[in-house]
Design a protein around this nucleic acid. Structure first.
Lengths: 206, 206
DNA sequence: CAAAGAGCTGAGCTATTGCTCACAATAGTG
DNA sequence: CACTATTGTGAGCAATAGCTCAGCTCTTTG
């Protein structure tokens, strides 16, 4: 299992529609296989088999296994989450609504394929390039939340940076746990409590 | 990589001191190797090498690779954490102290070897037997917290069970994130904010 | 001290993986 | 249609993993 292969870009760019289709089939299959078997046990041969594509074709578009997961991850990140946060009500008294927006965003983000996201978050040992992408994305989110908190009149916390980091992790991870495990708590209950937690923390009236 | 081997118990029980020593050496080495290379790349040969023990000896005490991580995990779980929670002050006004105890507990639990714990939490694909152990441990903790909340006069939340689950996950995961990544936030600041969050949530004064 | 069993060794087996490459099939172009 | 570029194939290679086993060394015991 070669771990430090830096080449993540396809060795051949698709020029015909057929090729683009094959690429997509591979990615779709990979998503299913990774979600079902995990990253380590999700072999490239299995992916090719599931995509009804020869193993050779797979390696025409992806230089190695890591690149497949990387592409999957980048696609997931780029696919417009976080669109709601810009158009938020920042007037006094709207803190709970703001918190709810954040929580909803996280929940939506996990709905598509919680298993695959689990793999991507937990199992993968990524190359530095991909790790940087994740890191940047995380910082971006924290930054956005920080700005949001800074603008909102109802927010009273000691340190904005810490608060932002804390909130992002809390919302993300709790949602993650809820969707990953056996659904023992109804989603609405969960959402309400999580929103309550974030709201009360941010409001800060002791 | 056989994944569903149910036999987790050693094939030979140590009867001489020498054997017990070897076993411990293997476990210690495994902890280091897993922490350093991750689970997948932490090969049994590497573990044996680091333990200065032949690969054959390793397989006399552990039927397979999974069993090693399993033992490591069980040991970590069994090693008395959570001792503080029983002797807590439950009088009115002590809510923050209670929350702080929970947070401190989590932080202490991560101090020994955060890397190894990271592996154990994230990377391992465990057998059902080990998963059950983890599950039971998690439920136990949530149960303890639930009882704690039920007893404390200052706690005002809608649903105790959800609150308990939420708190355990939040405290655990935030701590986990803090210790795993590059220490960007000082521990005291983190502790204070996390305590504030939990306290305000539990107090529930809207 | 000698027999017996516990403990230990490591070359190497089996299985599997990520991946290559020589070739075949198909699509685009004059 | 002929020719080229693009796309697709899959047997099989090299590497490496987990793990076995025949036989050695060390402890214990009488």
């Amino acid at each position: 299992m070669p771990s430090a292969d830096r080449r993540l870009h396809p060795r051949r760019k698709p020029r015909q529609v057929r090729a683009e289709l094959t690429r997509d089939r591979i990615l779709t299959a990979a998503a299913h296989v990774f979600a079902e078997h995990g990253y380590a046990a999700g072999t490239t041969n299995r992916i090719a088999e599931r995509a009804r594509v020869s193993i050779g074709s797979l390696y025409q578009y992806f230089p190695n296994k890591d690149a497949i997961l990387a592409e999957l991850l980048v696609r997931h990140i780029d696919r417009g989450t976080w669109t709601q946060a810009d158009e938020l009500d920042l007037s006094p008294g709207s803190l709970e609504a703001t918190a709810r927006a954040l929580v909803r965003d996280a929940i939506d983000n996990h709905r598509d394929d919680p298993q695959l996201l689990r793999i991507m978050i937990e199992e993968a040992s990524f190359s530095q390039e991909v790790l940087d992408t994740i890191e940047r994305h995380g910082e971006k989110r924290v930054g956005q939340v920080r700005d949001l908190l800074a603008r909102h009149p109802d927010v009273h916390v000691r340190d904005l940076d810490t608060a932002a980091e804390l909130i992002v992790t809390t919302v993300e991870m709790n949602t993650h746990m809820l969707m990953a495990g056996p659904r023992t708590i109804p989603v609405e209950t969960f959402e309400n409590e999580l929103v309550a937690m974030v709201t009360r923390y941010l409001r800060g009236d002791q």
